[in-house]
């Protein structure tokens, strides 16, 4: 069988590596975006209050 003759490690490493990287990257982006949006929310609120 083709699969039992090929070294499986690079394929498993690639699959799990890419998968986990993408999920962590998207999560990190969302958490970082949350911080920026909170800061913007405060700025807009203060801008409305000062008028």
């Amino acid at each position: 069988m083709f699969g039992t003759q090929t070294d499986p490690v690079p394929y498993m490493a690639a699959a799990y590596g890419i998968g986990i990287f993408v999920l962590l990257a998207y999560s990190g982006w969302q958490l970082s975006l949350r911080k920026k949006l909170r800061a913007l929310e405060i700025a807009v609120h203060e801008g409305a209050t000062n008028r």
Partner: peptide, 27 residues
């Protein structure tokens, strides 16, 4: 569980974004 967490986190961000845009326009 990861999918549900991502969905929730992203939804809150989108709502926050929409709310900021709405308040920014009214200001």
């Amino acid at each position: 569980l990861i999918g549900a967490w991502l969905l929730w986190t992203r939804s809150v961000n989108l709502k926050l974004q929409a709310s900021i845009e709405e308040h920014s326009h009214s200001v």
